[in-house]
Design a protein around this nucleic acid. Structure first.
Lengths: 225, 225
DNA sequence: ACCTGAACACCGTTCAAGT
DNA sequence: ACCTGAACACCGTTCAAGT
């Protein structure tokens, strides 16, 4: 057997250990040395399981997406729209679960089996909604982009919050401080700051997905199978 | 004066040098040591200009966004829809210009002056389109997310291509190879692969933005100022 | 087949010291 | 005020060697 390690730990053990470190120390804190140490291994032992750190990270993305219930997309007890919603919400939740998961996703193409299954399910749902196949694929890509984009905005905001509390003292003073506080030049941004759009409220996310779906299927196709 | 270095190089020189390295070696290749060396400086000299590597990267994001012409959003010779299009296309182009720019954006909140100006311009355009302020802010966030999401998908795909050509030999064989090639389980994905949705065709991007705008402003507001 | 130890060529950041 | 040199505590990855 090609991938078969016989002892000590398994590939999923390594991935799980990596996730634990990701959760605690963020993306920059994940090192193959650290993961190895957490498992009582030498760094070089990791290279028996994964050919590179990047391969490890891609496996992490797969485990992340493995957590979303793609099968639920085929459950025809609810309409296609509800099922797209469920899928989008699930992916976003998984991405929000671990700090730095967003950078992980950007580290390589989403061509793992779970990623492919997810994309396939989305296209199928839009076909079900009455779209021609090509448009269904475009719509699926748009939904993927939207979920990823919202997650990116959330990750960016969270990265800033971590940096601020982490530094505590006036680390970024001279460079960024005085220039960026002139907020009165952005009245509309200020007036709508209470919406906390980047913070990741579920209802705001659902609103965005709904507007996107409105545009994707047009007003004609209101058919909720 | 607080930020005033008197000699040798300026902050923008450092940012520019960092971009050159980003372009050539990707995100992982950018180091404060490397940037310093490119300018004939010692690594520690960089800390006279930026308090940390993260501060440097945030300055890079600002320079990236400085390249999009936000003023064009106020040019009322074209409709609000065209101007949203122009803004979205410009941001995406800037993000696509440098490999690894996406990770850069995720490294901290988008609260620099150029980022704020861009967000403000988007909200204003949606107010112009007839949306109430709160919905305009939500719409602006959706457009930002869409652009970022598409860029993230493109970055992920590009990261994969680099890894493949870089490794050349069977680096990821045992781990990912045999499991991921069973593409016949994803017929719809295969059937629409020719669309190259992740590759970043301009017309596909425009289609997505258009559908999103359709959903955001509804069918009632077709008013093109 | 799996794992260790030592080594190579790197990192970000701090701090005392120079001019 | 700006910059250097040396140092600290890390990195990913390779390779010979052990069992």
């Amino acid at each position: 057997m090609r991938p078969g390690p016989r002892r000590s730990v398994s590939q999923v053990d390594i991935v799980d250990a990596a996730f634990e470190i990701l959760e605690q120390k963020g993306f920059a804190g994940v090192s193959v040395r650290g993961v190895a140490a957490a498992l009582g291994l030498t760094p070089t032992a990791i290279y028996t399981y994964f050919p590179s750190k990047n391969a490890l990270m891609r496996a992490m993305v797969e485990e992340l997406l493995a957590g979303v219930d793609v099968a639920a997309a085929s459950d025809s007890s609810s309409g296609w729209r509800d099922r797209v919603h469920a899928l989008a919400l699930a992916v976003r939740a998984r991405l929000a679960e671990h700090a730095g998961a967003m950078v992980l996703v950007t580290s390589g193409p989403l061509d793992g089996p779970h990623a492919l299954a997810l994309g396939e399910a989305l296209i199928r749902l839009f076909v079900e909604a009455g779209l021609p196949v090509d448009d269904a694929a475009r719509a699926a890509a748009a939904v993927k982009a939207h979920v990823l984009g919202v997650s990116a905005l959330e990750a960016a905001e969270r990265a800033g919050r971590v940096a601020e509390t982490g530094a505590a003292e006036g680390a970024g003073r001279a460079t960024s401080g005085p220039l960026w506080t002139d907020a009165s030049r952005y009245p509309l941004t200020e007036a709508t700051a209470h919406l906390a759009l980047a913070a990741g409220a579920d209802d705001e996310f659902a609103w965005g997905i709904d507007r996107l779906l409105d545009g994707l299927v047009g007003t004609a196709a209101v058919g909720n199978t």
